[in-house]
């Protein structure tokens, strides 16, 4: 059952993104920004935590989950003090961002882009 809800929730979030892409003229970067920021806002209003509790990775893997982690870090930090409130968002997502930067840089140096075929 855990897997089923992760599947459905993740699928639904992606479908929302697909509908946004098809029906509006929003480009991919804007979609990414909208999803991350909406995750931040939903968590700030304590609305995203229930989805995470319910769907697990179905809610944390899509980009709103990234926003959720950012906001969660900030909110937990805020309980400790001003500095922790500011360092919180980056601390909670440091592993993901760090990997994305380092590994991404490495990949970019190794590979070359290909012209589409057919």
């Amino acid at each position: 059952m855990e897997y089923f809800w992760a599947f459905v929730t993740g699928g639904v979030i992606c479908t929302i993104g697909q509908i946004l892409m098809d029906t509006t003229k929003l480009t991919a970067p804007r979609i990414l920004v909208i999803f991350v920021v909406s995750g931040v806002i939903l968590q700030a209003l304590h609305l995203y935590q229930p989805i995470v509790d319910f769907a697990g990775n179905g809610a944390t893997v899509p980009l709103p989950g990234f926003g959720y982690s950012l906001a969660k870090g900030a909110m937990e930090g805020a309980e400790k003090g001003f500095l922790a409130a500011i360092t919180g968002p980056l601390k909670s997502t440091a592993a993901g961002i760090g990997t994305a930067l380092t590994f991404g840089y490495l990949i970019s140096l190794i590979f070359t882009p290909k012209s589409p075929k057919r």
Binding site: P29, A44, A74, G77, I86, P89, G104, Y105
Partner: peptide, 27 residues
């Protein structure tokens, strides 16, 4: 590397920091 991901990080992190500060003030 940041031409597309940059805006995502900027918007995501700054809104989260704002949330942190608001929560800190509220506390």
């Amino acid at each position: 590397m940041f031409s597309v991901a940059g805006p995502v990080l900027v918007c995501g992190i700054s809104s989260a920091v704002a949330v942190g500060i608001i929560y800190w003030l509220a506390g």
